[in-house]
Every structure is written in structure tokens, then in C-alpha cells.
Design a protein around this nucleic acid. Structure first.
Lengths: 225, 225
DNA sequence: ACCTGAACACCGTTCAAGT
DNA sequence: ACCTGAACACCGTTCAAGT
């Protein structure tokens, strides 16, 4: 129904160029980089849940199976997308401040990427201990510096991870919506501030809750020893 | 390939029973209750992501469109499933203790239901402010009692909600897995305790982090006024 | 080496039809 | 009133084939 995307037509008859790049801008062959770029485009515009192998192939102007030459399956594609989306995050230097500050600096950057890539949290929350090891390691190093025991470093990281990547799913697009019947009392009182959930206030509150909570666990750990 | 499920064959020729229930156990007609029960069976055994309208119809031994006579679409089915799965939660009495204790009592019950219904957190995390109003209201009332401002009641609830329903997705089934290359330093140190993530320790730590963190926000709120 | 095309086993859902 | 059957527009993926 829609027009085809503005990408070039399947570039097979442009000339007798055997391999490599064409003189013009048209792509003679795909590449992993192009595939990831196209996937990221879809994710940024329509969100991860709209990214399908078939949609990706349309975006690239190739047949549905073409991307499979470069990626084994969809889950590998999502791994590549996640890695690309999280690229450019700078790990705070150890001297840049106390652990709480360094942790926030790291979390803030991740959250920024998540905002730009709707639904990405969903991808990242599951794979957790399999991918993005460098990033996770950086967070864990901060927690070690804070004084957490190895066991609590893992658990504390999992707590952060759960909150950070789950956050994006809460109260996303769905507008106010026709709320049914008359609302329960406390619910109605609180709901006067729904708009706060979309903005920075909820973010600040939530992250502060987690970090302050972690501080409390650190104190408990030390007074238990 | 598989055998058909052990449910009765499509019960059309059992007798000339016009309507209502048959003398035997076979169902002459469907009902919302039966549909929800079948859906819950699928969820408990295989998880929410295996629950499809078609799988549900197979489970019931009817044609794929039959359930649509009782539920408008899949999202309505999921709402019914979520409500049924959360049934039986007892809201702690106001006199049963301080807010932290009452909140935990509520959260513990919800988490128990979530454990029995894999993937249900995913359903609940999105609908948040549209369904389960009574449960949400109960949580919010506790937060009001604690002394949170209306705005912070909503934000605090959202923080709990995010963590509680996101928790189930982290480190679920995927076994140890063939971890690649050699691991980064802090990561490797912490990973010696992976097994803790599946057990009660992670739950205790995480919930304590959130509640202690909320306490800290309450103090901040009061000292800011 | 790189891509296409047909096919399979799935989805959710609409719509007309059967009893 | 309650259910079926065919059909449509989607998925991910396998497998054989084309250049």
C-alpha cells in the first residue's frame, strides 16, 4: 500500500561492475554495517518492536533473506543493534568522584541512549550477563570500589539493571486514556501528577531511590561483618 | 506432529442436548471463565509468550476464532489473565505495621504470583495505570500514610512498579551459557555468585534497596519543605 | 560470494457463513 | 447465540536455486 521507501531500487543492472563499490552511490553489496544502520533507523523511528527481518529487508531494498547472509538470525541482529546503540558511552574515571557520582554518570549516559532507541531496554534486560560485558564490568568496578562484597556487587548490579532497563517500558505512549468508572481514592489523588512520569522528575526520583537504597545496603553489609 | 491435547474432541455430536450443560463432563459451550482458565494453564506451563489466540483455541479444542466470541482481542485476554493471576492478594491492614512492612507484605504477595506466571510482569508493566486499580490504590494508600506528597506517591509507586514487574525478566532461564573470551576483571569476580540471582537473596536485596531508597526520598522530601 | 524465490510453520484478526 | 472456515497481512526461517 505504501510507496516503496526512498532507498535505491535493487541495484543489479547498474553496470558490469564485478565487485567492490560502484562509481555512483548505489550499493553493489550489503554489509553488516549497512544492515545495522538500517536497523537502527527503524528502531529510532518506530521502536524495536517494529523491527522485523522483513521490515529490515524492505528498508534495505533487498529480498527478505538477504540480511541472513550477514547475520545468523534475528537475535544476533538485536545484539548488533544493542551494541551499536550503546556505542560512545564514556566510562567515568575513578578519580572523577565518589562511587555514587560515577555510577550516576554511567547510568545517565545509558538512559540517554535508551530514550533515543524505544524498546531497546527490552532487548538489553534479557541478555544481561551475555553481552555488553565492558559496560557491565565498568558498573561492577564502581560497585567494588564502593566496598560491596563480590556477591553484593552482582546483586547490586542486577538491581540497577532491572530498574534501568525496565524503566523505559513504564508509561510510554498510551495517553491519558478513558479511565473507567470512578477511581479509587488514593489512586485519584496521585494521578493528578501523571505528567511527571514522562519527564525528568520520575527519572531523578527513581535513580536516586536506587542509589540511596544501595547506600543503605552497603551500610547493612558493613555492620553485619 | 504432536498428538492432539488430551482435551475432549470438538463436542458437537455427543447428543441432541440443545443448550446448557450436558449430563457428561463435556462442554457444550465455551465461557469466559473456561477461556481464562485455559489461558492461565498455558501461562503457568509455558509462559505468557507462548500464549497465542491460536494456542488457546487448541487448548480448548475449538476453532481459532471461537474465543473471539468472548474476548474482543488478545489484549483483553491478557487483561483477564492478569486479573485472574493476581486474584487472592490480601491488602495489609493499616494497623498491621509501619508503611515499610505493609508495603513489603503487598509486594511479596505480588511477586509470589509473578513467579507462578512466567512473563506476566511483561503484561503488567505496560498497562500499569489502566488496570489493577485496586491493587495500585492499595500501594498508593500505604505511600500516602508514609507521608509522601501526592506527586511523590505517584513517582514512588512507579519506581516500585518498574522494579517489581521488571525483575522477573532478568536472568530467567538461560543457563550459564558458553561465556566468550576471557572475562573482564570485575565482571569475573562478581559472576562467581550468579546462582544468587535466581534465589531469594536477589529478591531480598532488591526489594530492600527500593524500600530503603524510598525512605531516603521521604527524608529528602521532608527536609526540603 | 552474494542474493532471490518459494515454501513452511507460525501469528492476530476480519468477514461471511453455518447451525 | 455460538461457532466454523477461508482469507489477509503479517512474522522468522529453511532450503534450493540463480548469478
Amino acid at each position: 500500500m505504501n510507496r516503496n521507501s526512498s532507498a535505491a531500487e535493487p541495484p543489479q543492472g547498474v553496470g558490469a561492475v564485478r565487485a567492490g563499490r560502484t562509481p555512483s552511490g548505489a550499493n553493489p553489496t550489503l554489509s553488516e554495517a549497512e544492515i545495522v544502520a538500517a536497523a537502527l533507523r527503524v528502531v529510532r523511528v518506530d521502536g524495536v518492536d517494529k523491527l522485523s527481518m522483513r521490515r529490515l529487508s524492505r528498508e534495505l531494498g533487498v529480498s527478505p533473506m538477504a540480511p541472513y547472509y550477514y547475520v545468523a538470525d534475528k537475535s544476533e541482529l538485536l545484539d548488533l543493534v544493542a551494541t551499536a546503540a550503546l556505542a560512545g558511552i564514556r566510562i567515568p574515571e575513578p578519580e572523577s568522584g565518589p562511587w555514587q557520582v560515577r555510577l550516576r554518570a554511567l547510568i545517565d549516559q545509558i538512559d540517554e541512549k535508551l530514550r533515543k532507541h524505544p524498546g531497546l531496554g527490552d532487548v538489553l534486560i534479557e541478555q544481561m550477563l551475555k553481552k555488553q560485558l565492558t559496560l557491565i564490568d565498568a558498573a561492577m568496578e564502581i560497585l567494588f570500589d564502593a566496598g560491596f562484597s563480590p556477591r553484593n556487587v552482582l546483586t547490586a548490579y542486577a538491581t540497577i539493571h532491572t530498574y534501568l532497563f525496565g524503566r523505559s517500558r513504564v508509561v510510554n505512549d498510551n495517553g491519558p486514556g478513558p479511565l473507567p468508572q470512578q477511581l479509587p481514592k488514593s489512586f485519584a489523588r496521585a494521578m493528578a501528577h501523571v505528567d511527571d512520569l514522562r519527564g525528568k522528575y520520575f527519572y531523578e526520583f527513581g535513580i536516586a531511590t536506587v542509589i540511596d537504597g544501595l547506600e543503605a545496603q552497603l551500610v547493612r553489609q558493613q555492620s553485619a561483618k
